[in-house]
Computed example of a mutant assay.
Amino acid sequence: MKSGGTLKKVLITAGAALVAAPAFAQSSVTLYGMVDDALVYVNNQKGHANWYLRQGNLYASKWGLRGAEDIGGGTKVIFDLQNGFDLNTGALSSSTQIFNRQAYVGVQNNTYGTFTAGRQYTPYYQFVGPLASSNWLTGATGAHPGDIDGLDTTIRINNAMVYSTPIWNGLQASAMYALGGIAGRTGAGQTISGALRYSNGPLGVAAGYLKLDNAQTNLPLAPTATAAFDPASTGSFGASALNNGYLTAASVEHASVAGNYTLGDLMLGLNYSNVKYVPNARSIFTNTAVFNTYAALAVYRFTPAFDVAGAFAYTLASKANGINDAAHYQQYSLKEAYHLSKRTTLYALQAYQHASGQTLGIKGAGNIINAAPAVGDSQNSTPSSTNGQFVGMVGMAFTF
């Protein structure tokens, strides 16, 4: 009887403890992604016309895992792991990174904002990018020439810490710092970025800044320096015919402002960006190179299922490094999209770019060449051998 009474007390005590224990925090993990492919025609890729399949045009082909756990008090622990891939070959977008697009963990609070750490996009891109043509049309043919200002998805940062405020009456701010992590050289290879945006009804405006420092860990002095941004740096950027001569910059600075206004089914936008390639003794060019881009866009929704968009971008380089006839690029982009459902879209893209003037080639100082067009972000490694390039695409995109 005594042992039975003891067992009864234990069971009652355990049951009371279970009733009194707090409920487990709610959590969720979501699998998401996009697949996108198109038949492409380019009139001139390094001297030859080409027909080929290209993935990731309207949307980048990718899959990811996104999760959140509510730990109470208006706070959530969040994470996002995102992988890019080539739909036509099945290959990873980066052979050395499974989660090459994003990989971060952090906390989010309704009152105090969000802090995340890992491989991430910059506040500059996150705030200004959604208002630029690379978002409303497509990065493939709608990004500014060669994506010179990084307003498409070409710039991602390692070892990054990002803080974003809550939204206050339509206003939000965000800041990033990425640690270079090189012993004895604090700041080498670091990245900093900050941005502001305001959204209220039909109006959206944003401004952002980004500075990528070159780690330059093992690069020799000019003129034998390797013509590339040191991969030990926390950030990297897209290389194209526009900036090949400036890849050894000690730092690269981006600044941009953009605004959109919606009138019923019509959206109009304007944006401006300024990009600087700043040299030092390890660079193979001498003077700071500057690229200014002025752009406008419009989107019109004829029906809930059908919309069209158009954009114009004008990029002008500075006179420096022995160049008197500075390069300039004019680009015209169009998009037509028919949405079969909320997840499936048929699309057509067309873009033409004209280049004139001169710039530096891959060998840097003294290697002055004629400027070559590279439409949007789709022809960075395949510029035209003439002063004009046309790209046309027909494709399908599916999101899940």
Rank of each mutant, 00 (worst) to 15 (best):
A91N: 09
Y59M: 13
A49I: 03
Q82E: 15
V35M: 13
Y59P: 00
L65K: 01
G90F: 12
Y59W: 14
R66A: 13
Y104P: 01
V42S: 09
G84M: 12
K46A: 10
L53Q: 11
L31R: 00
K46L: 10
V40C: 03
N100C: 04
Q82D: 15
K46G: 03
L53D: 14
S61L: 12
Q102M: 12
Q55N: 15
I98C: 00
G74K: 07
D36C: 01
N109A: 09
L58P: 02
N44L: 08
V35G: 13
A103K: 00
G73C: 09
K62C: 05
E69T: 11
S93E: 13
D80G: 04
N100T: 04
G90C: 03
T96A: 07
R101D: 07
G84E: 13
L87K: 01
H48F: 02
N83P: 06
A38E: 07
R54I: 08
N109Y: 14
A60V: 14
G72C: 11
A49H: 12
T89C: 06
G33V: 12
Q55E: 15
N83F: 13
L92S: 14
V40D: 11
N50D: 10
V42I: 02
D80N: 10
R66W: 14
I98E: 10
T96V: 09
K46C: 05
S94T: 07
Q108H: 12
K46P: 01
N50C: 00
T96N: 02
F85D: 12
L81D: 05
Q55K: 09
I98V: 10
Q108C: 09
H48S: 11
Q82A: 13
A60R: 05
I71G: 01
D86G: 09
F99A: 04
I71R: 00
D86Q: 10
Q97F: 08
A38M: 08
Q45F: 02
V40K: 00
S61Y: 12
I78V: 15
R66S: 12
W63T: 03
Y59E: 15
L87M: 13
G67D: 11
G33T: 08
N110K: 14
S94W: 02
G74F: 14
G106T: 06
N83I: 09
V77Y: 08
L92F: 11
G106F: 09
